[in-house]
């Protein structure tokens, strides 16, 4: 075994297929996408690419719709991080302490994650239905808050938040599982030592759980950020036109429209590149902030 480990050729042989697949299907498309973003192309093979320099970028950054989509997705990211990770980890911590029914609750909270986005969207369409027949509106009427009834997905003031809630509902189960996986690696002796020192309640969360779960938390935050920056399906199904006055438009939806509906492949690629750069910047920035609080190893 040791001999095999030292044989670099064998190691490279095992790594090569994965490296080739990753390069062909991940790295090259990114590079090609950046290349296409400096060109204009109508999507017809016989028509050659036309180099246009930064024109596609100038066009998208002078488009109020694109700027609105950036604003929307950043709001989406901030609120999603603030909701999905804390709720997911809180659920994980609570359920971890259940003596009975742990499996049931794990499954119950994880099920939305494995449902198709179409099914989830259909369900939330019933909840957000714009008349008094909608589940949410009818609930508000029943508890005497009929003034709060809304066309949730149509009203520009509520539509983005309505989508964020759908994403949160879908995703918290995933972060709950990550939290529980993290918790299973923590030795009981740490809690026993903490108990002897009188650490309990919120102090236990702050001084034991959060530091020990810091790496899973960091990873979860990055996953939320990268996941939300590419959010497309939920938005496309629930508000296919990008919402009233573009209230729910996001860059991925714009990119899809520009590329596949309008055959503006250069502009679509420029939007993809901006999403890539934005994701890199936001992720690195977030990691930098989170790395200031170092994780603890015992």
């Amino acid at each position: 075994m040791e001999k095999i480990r030292k044989n670099k050729k064998i190691i490279l042989g095992f790594l090569l297929p994965a490296f080739i697949i990753y390069t062909c299907f991940e790295v090259l498309p990114v590079i090609m996408s950046i290349y296409f973003s400096f060109n204009d192309w109508s999507g017809i093979q016989a028509v050659p690419l036309e180099y246009v320099g930064l024109r596609n970028y100038i066009k998208i950054f002078s488009s109020p719709v694109f700027l609105k989509s950036l604003q929307n997705v950043l709001i989406y990211v901030v609120i999603s991080v603030a909701l999905q990770v804390p709720i997911g980890f809180a659920l994980g911590l609570i359920i971890h302490h259940f003596d009975h029914g742990q499996r049931f609750f794990k499954a119950a909270f994880f099920i939305p994650m494995i449902l198709s986005v179409s099914a989830v969207s259909l369900l939330w369409n019933f909840i957000y239905f714009p008349t008094e027949k909608g589940i949410l509106n009818s609930f508000l009427i029943k508890i005497g808050l009929s003034d709060l009834t809304q066309q949730w997905l149509v009203n520009p003031k509520t539509s983005l938040m309505a989508l964020i809630i759908v994403s949160t509902w879908t995703s918290v189960g995933y972060y709950m599982i990550i939290c529980m996986a993290g918790l299973s690696t923590i030795s009981d002796s740490i809690f026993e030592a903490g108990a002897l020192d009188g650490v309990a309640g919120i102090k236990k969360v702050w001084y034991i759980y959060i530091p020990l779960l810091w790496d899973p938390i960091k990873m979860s935050v990055i996953m939320v950020i990268t996941g939300v920056l590419k959010i497309f399906d939920t938005v496309y199904i629930l508000t296919p036109s990008g919402g009233t006055n573009n209230s729910t438009i996001v860059p991925s939806l714009l990119m899809y429209n520009e590329s596949f509906r309008y055959s503006h492949y250069g502009i679509g690629s420029a939007i993809a590149t901006v999403i890539f750069i934005m994701s890199a910047l936001v992720s690195v920035f977030s990691l930098k902030i989170m790395n200031k609080k170092e994780s603890i190893e015992y």
Partner: peptide, 29 residues
């Protein structure tokens, strides 16, 4: 090492996103 690993993983996830988002490169697949 952990920082490098986490950063690399984050970049991989982002690359995944842009790769999926790109237009013409999808042509190849």
């Amino acid at each position: 090492r952990k920082q490098i690993l986490t950063t690399l993983l984050a970049i991989a996830m982002i690359a995944n996103l842009t790769g999926c988002s790109s237009t013409s490169p999808e042509v190849s697949t």
